[in-house]
Amino acid sequence: GSPGIQSFLPPGWEMRIAPNGRPFFIDHNTKTTTWEDPRLK
């Protein structure tokens, strides 16, 4: 199987799917959430 997208996120980050189907990202380091992919910064 191919590695999940989770493995490509920075340490402490998690990806979830919102009720509307959009992915969002949780930064457990700062306890914040964002719509922006942290890998694109």
Rank of each mutant, 00 (worst) to 15 (best):
G1A: 14
G1R: 09
S2N: 13
S2L: 13
S2T: 14
S2Y: 09
S2I: 11
S2G: 13
P3S: 11
P3G: 12
P3R: 08
P3D: 13
P3E: 13
P3N: 13
G4F: 07
G4K: 11
G4P: 14
G4T: 10
G4L: 09
G4V: 11
I5F: 13
I5H: 13
I5P: 14
I5Y: 13
I5T: 13
I5V: 12
I5K: 12
I5C: 15
I5G: 14
Q6A: 14
Q6H: 12
Q6Y: 03
Q6D: 14
Q6K: 10
Q6W: 02
Q6S: 13
Q6L: 08
S7L: 12
S7V: 11
S7W: 10
F8A: 15
F8H: 14
F8D: 15
F8V: 14
F8N: 15
L9I: 04
L9P: 01
L9S: 01
L9C: 05
L9E: 01
L9D: 01
P10M: 06
P10F: 06
P10D: 03
P10S: 04
P10Q: 04
P10I: 05
P10L: 08
P11L: 11
P11G: 08
P11D: 12
P11T: 10
P11A: 14
P11M: 11
P11I: 09
G12E: 02
G12D: 02
G12V: 01
G12A: 03
G12N: 07
G12T: 02
G12K: 03
W13A: 00
W13R: 00
W13L: 01
W13I: 02
W13E: 00
W13Y: 03
E14F: 05
E14T: 10
E14L: 04
E14Y: 05
E14S: 09
E14G: 03
E14D: 04
E14R: 03
M15F: 06
M15V: 08
M15W: 05
M15K: 04
M15H: 02
M15G: 01
M15Y: 06
R16N: 04
R16K: 10
R16P: 00
R16Y: 08
R16F: 09
R16Q: 07
I17M: 10
I17L: 12
I17E: 04
I17P: 02
I17Q: 06
A18L: 09
A18I: 03
A18D: 10
A18Q: 05
A18W: 04
A18K: 05
A18R: 05
A18M: 10
P19M: 10
P19V: 08
P19R: 14
P19Y: 09
P19K: 13
N20D: 12
N20C: 14
N20H: 05
N20Q: 03
N20A: 02
N20R: 02
N20F: 04
N20M: 04
N20Y: 03
G21T: 04
G21D: 02
G21R: 04
G21N: 04
G21L: 03
G21I: 00
R22K: 11
R22L: 09
R22T: 09
R22D: 07
P23D: 02
P23W: 14
P23M: 11
P23Q: 10
P23L: 10
F24D: 00
F24T: 03
F24Q: 06
F24M: 07
F24W: 09
F24I: 09
F25R: 00
F25N: 00
F25V: 00
F25S: 00
F25P: 00
F25D: 00
I26W: 06
I26N: 01
D27F: 06
D27W: 03
D27H: 08
D27P: 00
D27K: 02
D27Q: 04
D27I: 01
D27N: 11
H28D: 03
H28E: 05
H28C: 15
H28N: 09
N29P: 01
N29A: 09
N29T: 10
N29F: 09
N29M: 08
N29I: 10
N29L: 10
N29Y: 09
T30F: 05
T30S: 09
T30Q: 06
T30E: 06
T30G: 07
K31E: 09
K31C: 15
K31F: 09
K31M: 13
K31N: 14
K31P: 03
T32W: 08
T32G: 04
T32S: 08
T32I: 10
T32K: 09
T32L: 08
T32E: 07
T32D: 03
T33H: 09
T33I: 15
T33W: 15
T33C: 15
T34M: 05
T34A: 03
T34W: 07
T34Y: 06
T34V: 05
T34E: 01
T34S: 08
T34H: 08
T34F: 05
W35A: 02
W35I: 04
W35D: 04
W35Y: 09
W35E: 04
E36K: 12
E36F: 14
E36S: 08
E36D: 12
E36A: 10
D37L: 05
D37A: 06
D37H: 06
D37C: 06
D37E: 05
D37N: 03
D37G: 03
D37W: 08
P38N: 01
P38C: 06
P38W: 01
P38E: 01
P38V: 03
P38Y: 01
P38A: 01
P38F: 01
R39G: 06
R39N: 06
L40F: 11
L40Q: 12
L40G: 13
L40K: 10
L40V: 11
L40T: 11
L40M: 11
K41P: 15
K41A: 15
K41R: 11
K41I: 15
K41D: 15
K41M: 15
K41F: 15
K41S: 15
K41Q: 15
K41W: 15
